[in-house]
Design a protein around this nucleic acid. Structure first.
Length: 935
RNA sequence: GCCGGGAUGGCGGAAUCGGUAGACGCAGCGGAUUCAAAAUCCGCCGCCGCAAGGUGUGGGGGUUCGAGUCCCCCUCCCGGCACCA
């Protein structure tokens, strides 16, 4: 035998060679081909923050595994990649380092691209795009103008966070505890004009089409449906006669409100308006306290989470309004929790049945009136009322009625109870706590379907839907009407920022807001600005701002606001298909590739990005740019990769994050983190477990892993660590194990190549000849694992595919090696292992596939199929339970009838021992699984 | 606060339909090899118990012959909340 040195596993060389081969052969170039089924696999493109982190590795490995798997199954695959390149971090970096956002962004892209390439993803780089390229964003502008023409885009005022010191608009992220991140100044709300996209015009379709997205996780569809929030309610007005200085009725004497709980209208004990409401402004004229309160409401956060958690405060206006059904006088308050931008900026308050109103009423000692009860509660109250009435009637006729209706026992009890006041006390709810606003052990009063009105005059006894209808009917004569209300709001896209896509509008003193003509697109963003934190640097760029009006030619000014970066990411998936077309946003190629067959990205995008993309798709369809109505057929929401983050909020405002390497971490006896201090000066830091991100200084760069172990190890480890949808706390313990496994695969394959390969018969005999038992068992195990792995891959559970590969190798290493049968079974097993492993670890499997003579290119091999003939077995083992506890096992023929199994079970020694002589009451036989004797 | 999700050994996780809890790894322990170490290989490994056995899937209750899995209540953690992306 020839002396032969087994080649060592050297990932750096092996991986570079594999990538060179793919590059040379243009292996991942995607070409439209109508003869094959297509598979468009897309991972959410990254923001070029500087370096990849483990969340990226997870995301893109998942996409790559699916892409390669489908390619092996005969699909024409497309996996593109690009850059979500506009955004705030580039401006923050500019403020810190005085580097233009453009340069910073392009440098980051170059570095991260090289990292992605080192990971060996099967990406068609010919289709690469970056949203900050004029060739891309010109189509943002173009479609925006089309939307403007159709009335989908429009202008109105928006509320923003205003930093009074820097004189600039702040992103929510830049507001920390109500103060500006750089100045520490208390942030104000400010109303400024901005452009909106009418996503609410598509609300019905966005909601209805969720039902067609059966390839989406249920939780994402639920979140979107809740976000869209369709509810039917009633809009109506309270009357008033408040007049302004000129004597005119404010708002025509009507205070409009909207409610989804019109059934509680008789429970209204006050109304509340937003600080900006005209009635509030009017009331504050001669009321300094109220004026001060209104001023205070204008400060603070615009964020919903803050609005919901802040202390609910209010002041009476001294005004009253008139209840439209009872004519009662209702006090009018100003509340900091009422938003001018929702509905009409006013609410009716029913403290008994709305938790927020309840809290407000308790705080300010306002009356609470219960008007909803469970049906049971209502019936008892009605009975008591009948008894009371009849008791007071000398004729007393209807005790008989009670008898016939309720039987003697109940009728008597009702009479007796009536005598004692306790009978009513049972139904009085406790007004101390919201949670006690319902009788014990009964349905919550917030369950619409199970409750009825009480104390509500004509509506008593009506259930939710009937009561709402009746109230709406009664309000109709006063202008009230049933109305569908959406939680979804139109999408404000104007950003007072530099590093984004310019909004293509020119402001002319004579012609107003003039759209930039199509032939002047794109409006190119100058790339040499350096933001300094004091507002949009475009405002200082005369060369950008000053322009002739396209209509009248007079001197005019360009809009300096840029678009929300969610615009950029709302259609990139379609542009990949039509990349390079400078004459149109999309072309026919988009209709070939769309929909995206599999979209992969973080769960944090479950609502906004995905909803905006769905909306934009529908607009593109309506504009005739694309035929599909939903962009993403299947969605895999990757769980977040979490890591520890350490932060400190200095006195002057802001938030500083520190790398964990700079922190003394304190832990308790169990190793749980209890706190940490900055090594440098002992500053006490806050700890959070959160997603990896550059801004939090907690990203783990995969580069060290790649350098030390190779890309295949990094990929394998990431897939093996947990199922894709699960949140994953980062921990690199176990990387060694992944690398060890790949080394074993390498050595085993080289060993096979050297010793066994020559003995494999030219023509396969497997499947015909009967194998010796040991080999048949081995082959059965291999095929069983393969079957499981294919099943797991189909359900996108990659961690068990990885462990399946390990099981195959374990089995192969223990296999007998004598004779041609063994060589053949091992060869078949190895070829299955390499192919199953190849989507996860493409480099090592590429090399071994060729080395072992299985073929030229594993990319072009077929996905292996488990042979049913290898799986059959004559006998099966059943577990044997007595009273549900495992007491032994039973070997029976695979096709044994139930009664034979039952008899064998009862005769079993272990079973008899634990039955302790008692007769079997019941025997449960689950074929192929178990026997349970109940005695 | 609201919406969505999660919790299984020391750690990551497995368990397809309600049917042997802990597959596959990591860490640890014992052994082989080695002058020694690394690497590699073999074995053990939830907890209590000498054992028989008992017990165990965040906590409490329920349904079932049988519950990690289904139902109700609670705790903690994570994601989103419209200008981070």
């Amino acid at each position: 035998m020839q002396e032969k040195q087994t080649p060592a596993y050297t990932p750096a060389d092996i991986e570079a060679a594999a990538r060179a081969y793919w590059d040379d052969s243009q292996a991942f170039k995607a070409v439209e081909d109508a003869s094959k089924p297509k598979y468009y696999c897309l991972s959410m493109f990254p923001y070029p923050s500087g370096k990849l982190h483990m969340g990226h590795v997870r995301n893109y490995t998942i996409g790559d595994v699916l892409t390669r798997f489908h390619r092996m199954r005969g699909y024409n695959v497309l996996q593109p990649m690009g850059w979500d390149a506009f955004g705030l971090p580039a401006e923050n970096a500019a403020i810190k380092n005085a580097v233009p956002p453009a340069k910073w962004t392009y440098d980051n892209i170059a570095y991260m691209k090289q990292q992605l390439q080192a990971l060996g993803f099967a990406i068609d780089w010919n289709r690469e795009l970056a949203t900050c390229q004029p060739s891309y964003y010109r189509w943002n502008q173009w479609l925006f103008l089309r939307m403007l023409e159709k009335g989908i885009a429009y202008k109105k005022t928006q509320t923003v966070n205003w930093d009074p010191v820097d004189q600039t608009v702040l992103a929510n992220e830049q507001v920390i505890d109500g103060r500006g991140w750089r100045t520490g100044a208390v942030v104000e709300k400010r109303e400024i004009p901005g452009y909106y996209l009418g996503i609410t015009q598509y609300a019905d379709e966005l909601l209805d089409d969720l039902d067609t997205l059966d390839g989406w996780p249920e939780r994402v569809r639920t979140m979107q449906a809740n976000w869209i929030g369709k509810s039917t309610g009633v809009r109506f007005a309270f009357g008033h006669d408040v007049r302004d200085e000129s004597g005119a009725l404010i708002g025509d004497g009507k205070l409009w409100v909207f409610t989804t709980r019109a059934d509680t209208i008789m429970g209204v004990t006050f109304c509340a308006v937003a600080a900006e409401h005209p009635l509030a402004t009017h009331a504050a004229r001669n009321n300094p306290e109220l004026a001060a309160f209104i001023e205070k409401c204008k400060h603070g956060s615009v964020m919903e989470a803050d609005m919901a958690t802040m202390e609910k405060e209010g002041l009476p206006t001294g005004l009253t309004v008139v209840h439209p059904l009872t004519g009662e006088s209702v006090p009018l308050w100003v509340g900091n929790y009422v938003l001018m931008s929702y509905g009409d900026g006013a609410v009716m308050a029913v403290p008994a049945h709305d938790e927020r109103d309840f809290g407000f009423a308790k705080k300010y000692d306002l009356p609470i009136r219960q008007v909803i009860a469970t049906r049971h509660h209502f019936d008892l109250l009605r009975d008591l009322a009948v008894v009371e009435r009849d008791h007071a009637t000398p004729a007393g006729f209807s005790f008989q009625d009670l008898l016939s209706q309720h039987g003697p026992e109940r009728a008597l009890t009702m009479i007796e109870d009536r005598v004692s006041d306790d009978a009513y006390a049972e139904f009085d709810y406790v007004a101390a706590k919201w949670a006690e606003y319902r009788p014990e052990d009964q349905l919550p009063l917030t369950d619409n379907e199970a409750t009825v009105c009480i104390n509500s005059g004509p509506y008593d006894g009506l259930a939710y839907a009937a009561a709402v209808d009746a109230v709406a009917t009664d309000l109709a004569s006063k202008g009230g009407e049933k109305k569908v209300q959406w939680r979804l709001r139109d999408w404000g896209v104007s950003r007072q920022r530099y590093w984004g896509c310019p909004i293509p509008i020119i402001h002319c003193d004579h012609c107003g807001d003039v759209p930039v003509p199509d032939d002047q697109l794109p409006v190119v963003l100058p790339e040499d600005c350096i933001p300094d934190g004091s507002g949009n640097p475009l405002l200082k760029r005369d060369d950008f701002i000053n322009v002739a009006c396209p209509k009248c030619g007079a001197a005019a000014k360009r809009e300096t606001d840029t678009m929300d970066t969610f615009v950029d990411s709302s259609w990139y998936y379609a542009r990949y298909c039509s990349v390079g077309n400078d004459g149109a946003m999309l072309d026919e190629r988009a209709n070939y590739w769309m929909q995206v067959d599999q979209y992969i990205g973080g769960i944090e995008h479950a609502i906004l990005h995905l909803l905006y993309s769905r909306f934009w798709s529908k607009v593109m369809r309506d504009m005739g740019l694309m035929t599909v109505k939903e962009p993403f057929a299947r969605l895999l929401t990757q769980g977040m990769v979490l890591n520890h983050a350490w932060l400190h909020k200095p006195e002057g405002g802001g938030k500083n994050y520190y790398w964990e390497s700079d922190v003394d971490v304190q832990r308790d006896a169990k190793g749980q983190i209890t706190g940490g201090r900055l090594k440098a000066d002992g500053t006490v830091l806050e700890h959070e477990l959160t997603t990896m991100s550059k801004s939090k200084n907690n990203g783990v760069d995969p580069q060290a892993l790649i350098d030390q172990y190779g890309a295949d190890t990094a990929r394998f480890f990431m897939m093996f660590a947990s199922p894709p949808e699960q949140t994953l706390e980062w921990n690199d313990a176990g990387v060694e194990g992944a690398h060890r496994f790949l080394k074993r695969v390498w050595n085993f394959a080289q060993d096979y190549n050297a010793e066994l390969r020559a003995r494999v018969p030219a023509t396969s005999t497997l499947g015909s000849a009967k194998l010796p038992a040991a080999l048949a068992d081995l082959r059965r195990e291999l095929h069983l694992v393969l079957k499981q792995a294919s099943y797991d891959l189909a359900k996108q559970q990659f961690n068990t595919v990885a462990s399946g590969c390990m099981k195959m190798l374990n089995a192969l290493e223990k296999a007998p090696r004598d004779g041609s049968d063994a060589a053949e079974v091992i060869g078949e097993g190895l070829s299955m292992l390499l192919r199953v492993l190849s989507p996860i670890c493409p480099h090592i499997t590429h090399a071994l596939w060729r080395d072992c003579g299985f073929g030229d290119d594993i990319l072009n091999s077929d996905w292996p199929e488990a042979a049913e003939s290898a799986l059959v077995q004559d006998e099966v083992e059943l577990m044997l339970q007595v009273n549900g506890k495992l007491r032994g096992s039973l070997r029976v023929a695979a096709d044994a009838p139930k009664d034979a199994i039952e008899a064998a079970a009862l005769a079993n020694e272990a079973a008899q021992k634990f039955m302790e002589g008692k007769p079997a009451k019941k025997v449960v036989v689950v074929p192929g699984r178990l026997v349970n004797i109940v005695c």
